[in-house]
Design a protein around this nucleic acid. Structure first.
Lengths: 190, 190, 190, 190
DNA sequence: TATGAATGAGTATTCATTCAT
DNA sequence: GATGAATGAATACTCATTCAT
């Protein structure tokens, strides 16, 4: 093994891709990504077969990051609401502190270059949080709906919350709380 | 070009643009739009200065369409909830019957080619519905939040609802109702 | 029809392609072809779908040119040998006066980018001369062989003749005669 | 690199190069050659200075192989025709049993990456057979022509013969004989 | 010496925009 | 005004070659 593929370099490329895609959409040029990552254009293709592969890998990496944020320091016991709120705050915090990744994610989400397989794989990372939402579903106002629908609503309200935080960072706490209230009432009020 | 000859042609171009952008994103080629619209490529530039102008015009046209759908047959009197629910159903119906436009809209929403001016102009079309949401804000669970935030939450839950309807058209009624419940609980008094 | 596709321009591109391919093989860059033809790179793709299409079109154009040369001023009556010799001389003359085309042809002949369909189409242009070779086959030393084999031998000896003429232009007449003698003896009755 | 470690590796590279070039022309990638040869890409450059060097070396190796085939089991005495025919049959047999090498050879022959020096060096390998052809020249119908011309005609008819054998392997014997008849009459008939 | 990751110049092709008709 | 051919900058991707391991 002459020079092993560097995980560091791979990460740098993914980070750079997130930044470029956040700013220019999935049409953002590979050349910009390469420059941002500090590697040659060609190097990108030793780590990813083609641009679509990079895009899909980035989607998964972002989902994985987010899932880690979710799990981080989660209180095992406590009420259902407390646990959901904790997860919510983690989610919002991750998004607020990773604006490029968040914008990249919303670009990728609406892109037809992300395959269905990738989307399903990405969803797997959230199975754990899904279990928590299952509880919500069995008790709350959305009784009978699929947990996927509940999760999607959470994601969309969180997304909205984050876009307002991005515009008014000083009101972050306010929006974090208001967003959670909206979400919690949306799914749990009887 | 004070006023181009044919409004019909302008509309055809906008419709074609929505279809192409729905399928290929904002990177969809002008040539495809022209073919779809049944006009020559060059003609597009007699109606729109450049591609960005077309994109922004499309954004506004879609917002306007949506606003019309909102207003259509809106009951002047009745309870607040009934009025909001009516608007909600119009919104969902428009989205469900205009899938290309809806997808185009979500592409345009995350694109940096839509200027802030355009976004503000687009928001104006919703001032009327905004007035209704004002009422919700003053009385509901999100008291003290800006109506814009409430509107954005409505939009995001509607968007989520529509994406589930797109995947399971037979369950349209179910999702329409569940989506509205979620939204109404999210924003109304607890 | 805004500006009709120009046959002149198409020919200029084919001529330029022949020259570039003669010098650099089928790997010769489109950019060089464009410059040589005096058109923009992009223009080439309004006349040919892609490089392979250009290559195949060039193959056919060269075959057609050659076939025209064959037919030009062919004596209808006279002995079989006189007619074959006349064709031979035309062939050689065309090759000697079109060195780029000739070299391009030999590059294209061994390239796998020329499809079988194209090769068959190219062969059609030679059906007329084929009829003459049929006579040779029925009477000559290669009795029982397919006229295609005889034609191929003619082509290969002609090709060899031309490559020697290219290196020693002063001896053109000598090689033209010697080449024909070789060919005629090869295929005619002993 | 006076003499690299392994002659085996060098041969493997040349064989792989022949196969790749047969299929993809001289533009075939080094990476494919390396994989086919079972060595790393970089290794190729310890055996050959650059791609052109590899190409030229391959040209010479193929010529040498062919020359060996010629010489193999050649009857020292016997008539001129018998000796020429024997050589012819060796040539055809080599070509028929080494299709990749043969195709590679025709690609290399028309490539401008093979230098004149290399071509002359390659011709040297055939001096011996050249001596035999000298005899043909002094007695046959091509009296006064250079043996090089006669050799070239032999090569071209052999090439044609081989391409027909490649397409109709069952008729190999027929074409071998017919090709030789054509060649022998071409050069010896008075 | 052997390896294969890293490089960046080079390639075919696309596409918004211009302009001759 | 309408057309679509012409343009050339921009893009994803390839590949010979270098060099750290």
């Amino acid at each position: 093994m002459a020079r092993p593929l560097s995980d560091e370099k791979r990460s740098a490329i993914l980070l750079a891709a997130a930044q470029v895609i956040a700013e220019h959409g999935t049409g953002g040029p590979i050349s910009k990504i390469a420059k941002q990552a500090g590697v040659a254009e060609g190097t990108i293709f030793t780590y990813f077969d083609d641009k679509d592969a990079l895009l899909n890998a980035l989607y998964l990496a972002l989902k994985a990051d987010l899932a880690v944020a979710f799990r981080h320091g989660r209180p095992a016991s406590k009420t259902l609401k407390a646990r959901v709120q904790h997860a919510w705050e983690r989610y919002i915090q991750w998004g607020a502190t990773h604006p490029a990744q968040r914008r990249a994610m919303s670009q990728l989400s609406v892109s037809d270059r992300i395959t269905d397989d990738t989307r399903q794989l990405g969803a797997k990372a959230f199975e754990e949080i899904g279990a928590t939402l299952d509880e919500v579903v069995t008790t709350g106002n959305l009784k009978g709906q699929s947990p996927l629908f509940v999760a999607a609503i959470m994601e969309s309200i969180a997304e909205t919350t984050l876009s307002f935080i991005a515009r008014e960072p000083d009101a972050a706490d306010n929006y974090t709380r208001a967003g959670f209230d909206a979400f919690w009432n949306a799914v749990s009020k009887s």
